[in-house]
Amino acid sequence: MVVLGLGAIESARLMLMSRSAQYPDGLANSSGLVGKNATFHEYVFAVGLFDKEIDDPLYGWAGNYISGGTFEFYETGKDRGHIGGCLISASQTVHPVNWVFPGRPSWGSALKDADRDYFNYAMKIGAILHDMPRESNRVDLDPTVKDAWGLPVARITHQPHENDVRMSRWQVDKNTEILEVAGARKTVPVYLDRMTGNTCHQHGTARMGNDPAKSVLNEWCQSHDIDNLFVVDGSGFPTSTGVNPTLTMMANAWRACDYIVDTFAKGREEHIRVA
């Protein structure tokens, strides 16, 4: 039995590289969907700067990265022009060497003044973008670039869905509004124009479903095509969710492993009935 847990990019890459006469398009790929519908959760945010002559220092670096969050905007709002929503959270702007201030002057006294005046007077409110799957957003094998072992690297092709662009704009504007109400003297909204992969979250490249023609894995993270191949990372997520996904991946992997031990290893097969 083989259980993959390499992350949605590398699990898809390994399946696509695993070609044979029997599986000319890669393992578990009779649907042609391995690598497709990749979602990546861009982190979009707004930064607020406060005035050290008036405001108290925030000392964001002293605490946890995130100090509070809300699901108030997670459900679809009919008047927003997009479906779905995101977890948003207030956070620090990290450490001096790379503190998160888009628009920070690049050199000279303006740089030094910006760091000195605002490093302790900054915070941000971010969103984990609940990006929509598109079949054309995909991981495949690069035709020219090889890794250190001479194997093709994963190539990523991605264009945000229109819903992603709208959701991020609405949510970043809301975050900016919250910062302004909280007293920020300057705001820097960061709008989505492309996926940079800044969260390192990966999902969707071996989507889970009941129909072998429309999905790669079944409800137990088990390949439809090959009984003894399981993929227990984020590859199986048909949609990305609008939250940090690792705990859900871990819980889902645990659930799949329970099935492997309690059922599959005993030579049985079970399925969840969907009404």
Binding site: P102, V190, R194
Partner: peptide
């Protein structure tokens, strides 16, 4: 002021 930017890899 509010000065918008677009996504970038920090």
């Amino acid at each position: 002021t509010t000065e918008a930017v677009t996504t970038f890899l920090q």
